[in-house]
Simulated scan of single mutants.
Amino acid sequence: MPHDVPPVRAPGPGAGEVPTRRPPHRQTRRPVSLALWSCVLVIYPVTVLLFRLRYRHAERIPATGPVLLVANHVSVLDPLACARLVWDAGRAPHFLAKDAVFRGPAGTVLRAAGQIPVSRGSSTASTSVSAAREALEAGHLVVIYPEGTVTRDPDWWPMQAHTGVARMALTSDAVVLPVAQWGPQRVHDYHARAWHPGLRAPAELLVGEPVDLSAHSARVRAGAPVTNELLREVTDLIMTRVRDQLAELRGEQPPAAFHPRPARQLPQPRSRPAGEAS
């Protein structure tokens, strides 16, 4: 698999156009921190061993500027494959990820590398959205899995997504890119809680055309309230694009509706020992 994305054409009239290449990766990635380089040195060889990656339309990832990359979630290994896609396209990824992976020394490195912890269902969840928005305002590429966890659909189609992705898309100038992933579940089957060890499992990633949210964004800029209904509409629009691209990768017809999210498990009250006063 080539590590460079295909050449693109410079803008201008059709006649006399000359092919040009994207800027060098050292420019499009900006200065790369030592923490991020350490992540690359670990993740890159692991993905080489785990996956035989195939990218479709990686050239659609802009060389510079804010990008919100929205992907489906079929495996706990998805971020490794997606990180390779972004890195090979000449950008440095900034992931929104569960706060559970930010514990201990690894968490310190991940934060220093610009990754963003998410604590869903807590008072700090909005802080993650704000941090992601700041990263976009700084011109970075942010990767988000709006489902929040591996899909519970038994056939691996996307389930209903959280609406934080819509809030970020509507309140930033980022290009919103839908990306479909298919293949990492062959290595780790989340539903069966099983690993299938092997080398170079096929995995494909399809980058779609940017999602046109100009009409929705114009309403917000004109003063329209960002209601739950608007957030759900935009979220479903983006995830429909992701689902349709997944159908293209799989060569199958997608379901008409998103699989429901699993019910949140509420904490159980602590049982009191016999004789303890209430």
Rank of each mutant, 00 (worst) to 15 (best):
D4W: 13
P6Q: 13
V8G: 11
A10D: 10
P11V: 04
G14P: 12
A15H: 14
A15M: 15
A15W: 15
G16L: 14
T20V: 15
R21Q: 11
R22K: 12
P23W: 07
P23Q: 08
R26T: 14
R26S: 14
S33K: 10
A35G: 02
L36A: 11
C39F: 08
Y44P: 02
Y44S: 12
P45C: 00
P45E: 03
V46G: 07
V46W: 14
V46T: 11
R52M: 07
Y55R: 11
Y55N: 10
R56E: 15
H57A: 13
E59W: 08
P62R: 04
A63Y: 07
V67R: 05
A71M: 10
N72T: 12
H73F: 01
L77W: 05
P79A: 03
L80D: 01
A83Q: 05
L85F: 10
V86L: 02
V86Y: 06
D88F: 07
D88T: 00
A92N: 11
P93F: 02
H94K: 02
L96G: 04
K98V: 10
K98N: 15
R103K: 12
G104P: 01
G104F: 01
G107Q: 00
T108I: 13
T108P: 05
L110M: 13
R111C: 08
A113W: 04
G114M: 06
Q115P: 10
I116K: 09
G121N: 08
S123P: 07
A125E: 15
S126T: 10
T127P: 05
T127E: 15
E137T: 13
A138M: 12
V142E: 02
V142T: 01
I144S: 05
Y145F: 13
Y145M: 02
E147F: 02
V150S: 04
W156L: 12
W157N: 01
Q160G: 11
A161C: 09
T163A: 14
T163V: 13
T163F: 09
V165T: 05
V165M: 03
A166Q: 05
M168P: 01
A169H: 08
A169C: 07
L170T: 04
T171V: 07
A174C: 06
V175Q: 06
G183K: 01
G183V: 00
V187R: 08
V187G: 00
Y190I: 13
H191L: 07
A192Y: 02
G198D: 06
R200V: 06
P202D: 12
L206D: 12
V207I: 09
V207Y: 01
V207R: 08
G208N: 04
G208F: 04
G208W: 03
L213F: 00
A215R: 01
H216K: 10
S217L: 13
V220M: 06
A222E: 12
A224Q: 06
T227V: 00
E229K: 03
R232G: 04
R232W: 10
T235L: 00
D236K: 02
I238D: 03
I238K: 00
M239D: 05
T240A: 04
L246F: 09
P254S: 05
P260I: 00
A263V: 13
A263W: 12
R264G: 03
Q268C: 11
P269D: 09
R270Q: 15
A274I: 10
A274V: 14
A277I: 08
S278D: 11
